[in-house]
Design a binder for these strands. Sequence first.
DNA 1: GTGAAAGCGCTAACAT
DNA 2: ATGTTAGCGCTTTCAC
Lengths: 390, 390
Amino acid sequence: MNGRPTIKDVARKAGLSLSTVSLVLNKRENVSDETRRKVLDVINELGYYPQRSARGLASKLSGNIGFVLTDDHFTQAEPFYTKIFLGTELEARKYNYYVLLTTVARTVKETDEIPRFLLEQNVDGVIIAGRIGLSWIEYIRRFKLPLVLIDYDVARHNLSSVVMDNRGGAQLVVDHLHKGGHTKIGFVGGDLDHPSIAERYLSFRETMQARGLSLNGAWVQVDEADTRIRDGYEAMKKILNSADRPTAIFAANDAMAIGCIRCLKESGLRVPYDMAVVGFDNIEAGLYVEPRLTTINVHREEMGELALRRIMEMINHQNNVVTKTLAPVELVVRESCGIKTQEHGHQIPHTFSKQGGNHEDLAHGFGTGSRSADVSVGSGGTEHEPASER
Amino acid sequence: MNGRPTIKDVARKAGLSLSTVSLVLNKRENVSDETRRKVLDVINELGYYPQRSARGLASKLSGNIGFVLTDDHFTQAEPFYTKIFLGTELEARKYNYYVLLTTVARTVKETDEIPRFLLEQNVDGVIIAGRIGLSWIEYIRRFKLPLVLIDYDVARHNLSSVVMDNRGGAQLVVDHLHKGGHTKIGFVGGDLDHPSIAERYLSFRETMQARGLSLNGAWVQVDEADTRIRDGYEAMKKILNSADRPTAIFAANDAMAIGCIRCLKESGLRVPYDMAVVGFDNIEAGLYVEPRLTTINVHREEMGELALRRIMEMINHQNNVVTKTLAPVELVVRESCGIKTQEHGHQIPHTFSKQGGNHEDLAHGFGTGSRSADVSVGSGGTEHEPASER
DNA sequence: GTGAAAGCGCTAACAT
DNA sequence: ATGTTAGCGCTTTCAC
């Protein structure tokens, strides 16, 4: 931490004043090209880097962004939020910003620790990722810092957010099934309080109607308490009880879809031949069910990136307009939707993103011949196994 | 970011000087109790918090620790390093330190980005977690910052490290199998360049000898290129080719153990009845194989904690003695080792309808997502149930 | 376009 | 035990 060159050294060696060097450092316009060159040369020669805290103190900006995550989200096996964080971090480098990651309990309690970066004015903006207690959002708002939510939103708070295009995704699913010949499509959901689930559900209904497909109440089960495997299983059971059955199920997320598949298998039904199933989220487990799950994918890193860019805009331009950013989604076609059945050898329609194949590399396990040829979009993937040498 | 009270305001309101307030802030001894009380009261009243950058500039300490992780480690599904990071972060709060998480490629390339916190003197110490290119270690060493490795070590670099007790773990495994009546124990490994794998292997040999158990060369397969499922599968195949077969296999990690189990099942052998299998690491996937895997667990958060404490010692006391810290491990007994099953002679229930499914907690993003990774353990033999509700 | 000077909010000698 | 006084390394008016 010692003996490293300071801006003073640069100024002296360049035969210029501190302020001129500072202007160059901050990429201001009013510096002659010649001067700029000279300063840059000296900086390079000396291996100079401006020191963070000094900068922060003088500029009133910390150069940090706070990234808040509930602990359960951070440590869950599905690396959803870690990837979002990674996207944010990578993007932040371009702005020479740091991301301070902190986890919190779901809701603020009196006794709880408040992220210190708020109290110490150590961040210029805050990103909150994932569903979190309203109390946290309200608490953090009071600091009057630029704030962006990722993968979550609260209608009544009018905050900027980056969420995946849930509506678009639901539309992709319905259209895909429809094109595949399905007209009797059911929906399985739960926890409609969650904005993402609610949007998927609403968009499902809208798209069905827009395509002239009729909705059957018995095929739509959205009253489950949660959106986990068990809930999907239970919802599927109810649907199977109806006299007339749908030929395809759209599950509000992959966990529920997996539950549906289990239920169908237990009932002796074959997926996708007797019933097609499509999920949402593209979690890794979707690759391990049989048949592998057709689902909707979103580029997680991109979401983190978008949020960071938005925050930086707010910081740099005092631009506090509330924006709702939609991260594009794509359909990942695997076996569970039954469009390309091996029996009939149908082709996969062109409308599907080629990038879907990228996610195949999540494939787990190794081919010992047990798995039939992949029916997937894009190139075959590299195999990937759980942590070996970590 | 404005109008917040400064140390000046506190001093004025308390009728004291700046330095006295500063002394209180920094918990120095030479302040009368009365004065301290008064200052603390005013601080509370004003809601004052010292500002990070100002502190940093004056004290020459950034108040940050750099946490370096290779990107593949960070985003892998097994939340091993995220939990270590979490442990570090939680512990850092106690010291009022921030942890700057950054990911890097495996090895330093000329074109690569160097973690900026090094260049900007924005950290007081660095933690590197997981196996990483030597070039990185060498590069970072040059900054002369306190440095601690987690879950990795490089013999010739004489660095402080926190690693799990690999030798102790291997001993636990051998002793457990031995006590269960096994005397013919095989070992499956690979990539002996990895210090953890090498230690497990060496300790396996040592313990076997110490217990008077003979080693059969045909039962020890450590030449696989890697330590993944596939490698375990191949190694197991070789062992099964030997005329005389062991009754138990100790795999160098869980991935390999899973490979062993697959191979055994394909060969029509029953685990644990025909062959017991024990792994190492306690990865989640070990809960989803059938039978569920007996393994060695380490408290990940604790490892992160220990490293942070060590770094703080180095920073605060200029204590640069090199220390090797062992994080304690524990045996997690499940069905694959056959000990418990034999004793109690019960079947292994493993159906969705009864247990709620192994993937019950895969729900991501939304939903409750609580994954109680409770590892109830001990050679005491407590049965460990996967996180699932009913 | 460049320089001089005044801080930013804190810590750390050094006095008292 | 408390106060005085310099800075820490940078940004930012404001002159010129």
